[in-house]
């Protein structure tokens, strides 16, 4: 099973990297960029085919390591 965990900064957390990317996009002349927040994507392959079990394992992984929940939110998707 393929799965994806997306980790993003919580709103209100200053994101200097996102700001730098935003500035670069604007200087490249990319139209209509209002703001940029950067984050991380983890593509994970799981053994087994139990979707509920997979979601629980991914949530565990995100809580224990992939995200720092002080500053980050995460979203878990089992892609099948």
């Amino acid at each position: 099973m393929k799965a994806r965990v997306t980790v993003t900064l919580k709103s209100g957390i200053l994101d200097p990297q996102g700001k730098a990317i935003e500035g670069a996009l604007k200087s490249l002349g990319v139209d209509g960029v209002a703001s940029v927040r950067q984050g991380k994507v983890f593509d994970i392959e799981l053994a087994g085919s139990d979707k509920a079990k997979a979601e629980a394992a991914l949530k565990d992984a995100a809580d224990k390591l992939l995200a720092n929940t002080v500053i980050e939110n995460y979203r878990v998707e089992v892609l099948g």
Binding site: P16, Q17, A20, N68, V70
Partner: peptide
């Protein structure tokens, strides 16, 4: 901080 022995987090320096 990452290990939870201290609160908070160290982020990228404000001026990068």
């Amino acid at each position: 901080c990452e290990g939870g022995l201290l609160p908070g987090v160290l982020m990228r320096n404000a001026r990068l």
